[in-house]
Design a protein around this nucleic acid. Structure first.
Lengths: 140, 140
DNA sequence: ATAAATAGTTACACTAACTGTAACAATTCA
DNA sequence: TGAATTGTTACAGTTAGTGTAACTATTTAT
């Protein structure tokens, strides 16, 4: 699952949890609301739990709920919680490239450039809160 | 082949062509210099030909050569020539999403956001020329 | 204590995408 | 005509992504 898909899935689930706060919701309820397999959703939500964005409780009357206000949750922290590879990454074949050769120098150039771009993207995401997304999609 | 890999492959080939300008170079010579299969390289270079960055000639003494000065070639135009999907794209499952539902609204939100990011990246690339890359990797 | 409900994790078959390479067709020039 | 070259297609092999199920661990209610 790509980082961008996990990001949008996470936001869908967080919006759903925000609407029903503070009642916890089970993975199967959230999953059917946002049209995703509940097992896959649990995998994603477990990452948000580990990063302190939501909390989970097993057992009956358990489930997931927000542990932060929606204007304290930033897109960048959601992204960092669920990503496994950077969105704008470079596929570099590092093997069979000679030291100090043109290919190696250009590989290094692009690694630096894409790191810069990645920082820019994350800066942008830091300025977007769950609340601002909810306001945006509700047209205010 | 990802857009980023094609981009760095293109830049490697263009640097090589810039060094030997105005002598045309065959795909097999370029390919062995930058360590890539020549058939795959021809696929990438043919896109640069279509976009007016280099020219190609078949036959003996044929090959590829630059038709622009290195400070007139921008990273953004190389990127646009070789990409088939945007670097920072969203994998949205548009099917089985109800009209005006929460999932649909959030999908649309992310499509807009990622388009914005894509524009930012391309703006950044417009300010980078082949010449500036060559200067950069030669440490000036 | 037992059962039910739930999160968390692992496993797996299926599909789609990517990779590397070769082969072929088209073009140019000697 | 033949050699060199680009441009394109094809294809097997590999890797990555998808969807789903099944299992374990934990909690709560009875």
């Amino acid at each position: 699952m790509s980082a961008s898909t996990k990001l949008s899935t996470s936001v869908k689930a967080l919006c759903y949890l925000n609407n029903s706060h503070p009642n916890p919701k089970s993975s199967s309820e959230i999953a059917s609301a946002i049209r995703i397999n509940s097992s896959k959703l649990r995998k994603i939500l477990s990452m948000l739990v580990k990063n302190g964005i939501i909390e989970s409780n097993a057992g009956s009357a358990g489930g997931f709920k927000l542990i932060k206000s929606s204007n304290e949750i930033h897109l960048q922290e959601i992204y960092c919680a669920v990503e496994d590879r950077k969105a704008f990454h470079l596929d570099v074949r590092r093997d069979s490239v000679q030291k100090n050769s043109l290919p190696e120098k250009i590989n290094n150039y692009f690694v630096d450039l894409f790191t810069e771009v990645q920082v820019d993207i994350e800066e942008k995401m830091k300025n977007i809160t769950l609340r601002s997304i909810i306001n945006n999609i509700n047209g205010s």
